[in-house]
Simulated assay, not measured.
Amino acid sequence: MYNYEELSINEIFDLLRKWRDNNERKSNEIMSLSERIMDNLDSQPNEKYLILEQLIMADLDCNYPMLAAKWIEMLDADFPDSLRVMKFKSMWYEAHDNYEQAFGILNKIIKADEINAPPALKRCIAITKAMGMTNEAITKLVEYLNQFMSDMEAWQELSELYLQVQEYSRAAFCIEELILHQPHNHLFHQRLADIRYTMGGVENMELAKTYYCQTLKLNPNNMRALLGLILAANNLLGHYKSSGSAKRKEVWKLCQWAQSEVTKRQREAQGSNDSALTSAMLALTIGD
């Protein structure tokens, strides 16, 4: 932790540089240093405009729109018609819920530079979502992914939007695309298992069981996947009525294993709040 009041101006500029390199916003920290930064900004001619951009983002994040407007005007005076400055203008309008003006500027950016259009397209989608137009946001995001199919953040966002409108099969498809890109990411397998469990039915419950197992194979410490596996297994036991069936025996063994694993983790975390939470969840989910 830094004591910002004791930092020299050179240390402050070094810190700003570090935050830029690490892609960290640190808006509250920058706001606390903003007065000293502006008083000494001319001492950093090579980084002046990068620092101004950091100040703009901090002002917008911390709800100081008039300060942000002042820095945007400074950039606009030195770089008229700059697409980068136009991006900050659109963000300023967006912060004021003036979505029509923000859309207009973003559309100009997209038309002016189609190669670097993805960030502007994604801002348009974000604004549409903020306006509560979920179906329109889905349509725009599908169109975006038709052009930029490797954008994992977009696939993840589309999945969340589909879940909001209860299009579970389409949400599952989006997560499957993410798994194709990152097959070793246990969170994607867990998410797909959750969706399949929510969809219900024997086939989806079997798939949920499979993906929960894969999640635990990739990350044995994923407690949510363990609890999900117990839920899915108990659900399947209700479908496989015949006590002698091979599938019921398999699911029963899996359920017993998952319960023993949860009990073991519970003992390891005895006395913690996590243990109490786990006990409560098990009491609700596990039948005799």
Rank of each mutant, 00 (worst) to 15 (best):
T134P: 13
R123A: 08
T134K: 14
I125F: 06
E143W: 04
E157M: 08
I127G: 08
F148T: 10
E136Y: 02
L141F: 04
A126F: 06
Y144R: 06
M131K: 15
F148D: 08
I125M: 04
M152Y: 00
C124Y: 07
Y144P: 04
V142T: 11
E157D: 02
A137R: 06
L121R: 12
Y162S: 05
Q147N: 15
A154G: 08
I125V: 10
L145A: 03
Q147L: 13
R123S: 09
M149T: 13
L141V: 06
L161K: 07
I127R: 05
A130I: 02
L161I: 00
K129I: 01
E157I: 07
T128V: 10
A137Q: 09
A154V: 00
E157Q: 09
R123M: 10
D151G: 02
Q156I: 02
D151Y: 05
I125T: 00
K140I: 03
N135G: 04
M149R: 14
S159Y: 08
L145K: 02
L141N: 04
K129A: 08
N146Q: 13
E143T: 14
Q156E: 15
E136T: 14
F148H: 15
S159E: 06
V142G: 07
I125W: 05
A154Y: 08
L161G: 02
E143Q: 15
I125G: 00
M149V: 13
A126Y: 11
Y162M: 05
R123Y: 07
R123V: 00
A120Q: 09
R123H: 04
A130G: 09
E160T: 11
K122A: 07
N135D: 15
N135W: 12
L121T: 07
N135H: 14
E143F: 10
S159C: 12
Q147P: 07
A126K: 13
I125Y: 01
W155A: 03
N135T: 11
T128D: 00
I127H: 06
L145R: 04
D151I: 00
M133I: 00
N146A: 11
M133F: 10
E153T: 07
M133W: 12
W155G: 02
K140R: 11
Y162T: 05
A126W: 06
M131D: 13
